[in-house]
Design a protein around this nucleic acid. Structure first.
Length: 413
RNA sequence: GGGGGAGUGUCCGAGUGGUUAAAGGAGGCAGACUGUAAAUCUGUUAGCUAUGCUUACGUUGGUUCGAAUCCAUCCUCCCCCA
């Protein structure tokens, strides 16, 4: 990596201001990669150097965070980096969230017919739109907000451009990446286009002339690829800042939609609060650390109270204070006091009807067999009374409960 | 282009002619215990008009009284050599 000669006699006020910003921005960050330099005889990391540069030239830093719109929902795991981005905004820097409509399109698994990508582009754009709304819950949409779509440049590259890009990196370099080397070792297939992925992401940084790129620790390789490509083109390479990956509600795997252990930004207040209450005590400090500004030393002694506070804080952030409060009360009533929830959905079914059929009809079981199992195992209540007779007939409208969470008021269709 | 190996339920994975709706694990669901905790324990986990029937071990066809298991075909993937 080329060394840019750093300015040496930097005024104290600039050093002070850079230190102040650095303290805020480095909090909770796993690694700051690249750009370490000596300033005024002191060793500083790349972030510090960028901040000094920004202050000296009165130029806000451009901070990139890429997101592939493969699904419609953002979850709390995504918001870790978004929150960091927001801190940059609050200090006057430019947040450049990048929607990967181009990378998503290219990354579409092979073996599709030709019309599929075009459809997918629509889908991707639609997903991107909902992303934008959800991003707005964390980022400010003022003059420090500059959203980008990498399809705008990636899809315009011609074959020559792509060849040139590929020439900037070696195969050995690409396959040393852990995901790839693991898959190779385990005889898992790797498609050629997957190898191109880091290049595309790195090229985004070239196109956007980023100062800083944020990402989870799993993104380290891709972030550094951006550095390499920028350097090859004589640009000042970006600094990579990696953030820890938030574990999901199971407390073990990282939060992800496919593992179904996520808390969605768009979850209802009740869901959000409930899911937070179901995380383990052990994992709770992580949530505080990565999702809030709360000092862990100030938490209530009882873990349950601390967890309630966490739920309140997070619901308030993604919804509002009022619903945070009412949600917590509803939660207390329902689960701590064992009361029924306030608004119970009404579902119309044919009455009288066999119990099993009714359970399936309202969608609480996907087959008669499953409904039968639920009844046999004591998971079904009618009007608050446990029922065990699988052949029973529901005569009149009543309250149906299956398990702890599924509940509805039955009425005749 | 040549040689070798593999495809099993939501996932991983055992199973080489009948006792296999298919071991074991993970995950899911329900119950107990609780703080909707977590951990743990118990049960359960293809469908149905249900002591039976139907569908299911990549595809299609065949051998057999009987096939996830044997044969052929095609598809897909992996490894080695070139």
């Amino acid at each position: 990596m080329k060394q840019t000669s750093a300015p040496q006699n930097i005024p104290a006020d600039i050093i002070n201001e850079a230190s102040r910003q650095h303290a805020i921005l480095a909090r909770g960050v796993e690694h700051i990669l690249g750009g370490d330099t000596e300033l005024n005889g002191e060793k500083r990391d790349g972030l510090f150097v960028k901040l000094v540069d920004s202050l000296q030239n009165k130029r806000p830093l451009k901070v990139k965070l890429g997101m592939d719109p493969t699904a419609t929902d953002l979850h709390l795991g995504h918001t870790v980096a978004l929150t960091k981005m927001r801190q940059f905004q609050d200090l006057g820097h430019i947040a450049q969230p990048l929607i990967g409509d181009g990378t998503t399109l290219i990354g579409d698994p092979a073996g599709r017919n030709k019309t599929r990508p075009l459809l997918a582009l629509d889908e991707i754009r639609a997903n991107a739109k909902t992303y934008l709304d959800q991003i707005g819950k964390v980022l400010k949409k003022d003059e420090t907000f500059d959203i980008r779509y990498n399809g705008d440049w990636l899809l315009k590259l011609d074959f020559q451009d792509i060849i040139k890009l590929c020439a900037d990196v070696t195969v050995a370099q690409i396959i040393q990446r852990e995901d790839f080397s693991t898959r190779l070792k385990e005889n898992q297939p790797i498609s050629l286009h997957e190898l191109l992925y880091p290049l595309m992401q790195g090229y985004d940084s070239v196109a956007m002339e980023c100062d800083i790129e944020l990402g989870g620790t799993d993104q380290t390789f891709n972030l550094l690829m951006g550095r390499q490509l920028m350097d090859k083109r004589g640009m000042r390479p970006q600094i990579a800042m990696t953030l820890p990956l938030l574990e999901g509600t199971d407390g073990v795997e990282k939060m992800s939609k496919s593992k179904n252990n996520y808390i969605g930004v768009n979850d209802t207040p009740d869901d959000m609060f409930g899911k937070i209450m179901s995380i383990s005590d052990e994992i709770m400090p992580r949530y505080y650390e990565l999702l809030t500004d709360v000092d862990i030393k100030t938490l209530p002694a009882h873990p349950m109270d601390a967890k309630r506070q966490l739920g309140r804080t997070i619901v308030a952030r993604f919804h509002d204070e009022t619903s945070a409060k009412t949600t917590e009360e509803a939660f207390n009533n329902r689960f701590s006091q064992g009361e029924l929830p306030e608004d119970i959905e009404t579902k119309a079914v044919a009455l009288p009807g066999g119990l099993l059929g009714v359970i399936v009809a309202v969608g609480f079981a996907s087959s008669n067999g499953e409904a039968r199992r639920l009844v046999q195992q004591g998971g079904v209540k009618l009007a608050g009374e446990k029922v065990t007779d699988v052949g029973m007939v529901v005569e009149a409208p009543t309250l149906l409960q299956v398990g702890k969470l599924k509940i509805c008021e039955l009425v005749a269709a």
